[in-house]
Amino acid sequence: MARSRSQPTELVPLTPVVLHILLSVADSERHGYAIAQEVEAATDGQVHMGPGTLYGSIQRMLASGLIEEVSHRARDASHDDERRRYYRATPLGRRTLELELERLARVVGIARGKRLLRDPKPA
């Protein structure tokens, strides 16, 4: 597709939805519904994705080469639905995610320096 040759630097900053989807598929392949569930759980329900938002974002991320569909996925026999497709981050996606996370870390660092944000208390 047209925008598949994008550079990571052109793609950041990411929208919250794209960021969370990338986070979700960075370490393992997931299907759409699992992505939505994981994001919702990880953010305590703050990021809620409907089907349109989710698959709209997936389509755009596929188009810009941030994620890809897994062709030979291991089929988890019992709970699988044949309509489901699995996605995972591409190398470009991972580089973009790293770039974005570094950017966010820098932002958090600046905020700490100005004492706008307290250090997380050790558990």
């Binding site: 759409g32 519904y33 089907p51 989710l54 698959y55 309509r83 489901r84």
Partner: peptide
């Protein structure tokens, strides 16, 4: 309401999503 191409590509998954929800 979605474009046809989009529907063809993601329609089933979206339905599965709604069904699960």
């Amino acid at each position: 309401l979605y474009p046809r191409a989009f529907r063809e590509r993601f329609g089933d998954e979206m339905l599965a999503f709604v069904e699960a929800q």
